[in-house]
Design a protein around this nucleic acid. Sequence first.
DNA 1: GAGCCTGTTCGGGC
DNA 2: GGCCCGAACAGGCT
Length: 276
Amino acid sequence: MPELAEVAFYCRRWSPSIGAIVEDVLLHADKRVFRGHGSAKAATLAGRELMGRRLVSTRTHGKQMLHGFEGGRWLAVHLGMTGELSRPLVEGLRLGRHDHLALRMSDGHCLVFTDPRQFGVASIEVVEDGREPDWWRALPPEISSPAFTRSRVSEALRRHARSPIKPLLLDQAWFPGIGNWMADELLWRLRWRPSALAGLAAASPESAPALWRETRRLCRDALKVISHDWGDPPASWLFRHRWKDGGFCPRRSCGTPLAREDLRGRTTCWCPRCQG
DNA sequence: GAGCCTGTTCGGGC
DNA sequence: GGCCCGAACAGGCT
């Protein structure tokens, strides 16, 4: 599921345990989600670094999450396609076969990372200088940040002029947090055809500012609706109509049957009339 | 049983 | 080197 707003939603689930101490670490080190550590033994050793440490922060950056513990211990989580975070009570808890990491906390809750398909990643690291890990500080500007500028959007369009616009929107180096449904929503709002080359947009002076504005607006809207309680976006969004064949364009006075096809390996939904 | 899938990475080709 | 593309990863759900 997780794109920007869903990631924020899951991250928020752990934050009530900020201030609590890790009393036990259950880690299935041989699982694929710990591939960043190189070996199961290394993953187990890294997991031990969290023992006895207090959770001090949780944050997101696009689809990335970073949980900070005392003493420069960090737990990074990427949810991949099917990852989730939960915070059940320790009492009576039985872990499932896809619960790869569970931190038993001193507040009586367990911080659990689940991911059946294991496209997600969990990794633990120690950073002695008291700062966040280097790779985290090197992430591209978040869409909601001032560093995400019109000229950056314009540069993305220019640099990838020969790529269809939709795959470019999925590029986390330029649009961190945008995933498949957000990309479709954005293009539908802009009335751009997903297969149109980015260079076409780059050629028109209004395009980059429009894309910049709508991207920021969509992120804001999605966070508002989804990140607090996983609310469904309103029926006026493409979101509600794009999941299976047979949907209709929700734009007032359109109602055209939506097209749904594979583009570069990703299901893509658009309105053939509005996005002609 | 077959097909589908809200993500990322890697190797091949141009 | 830069960029574009398809394949691969895995398991639950329809």
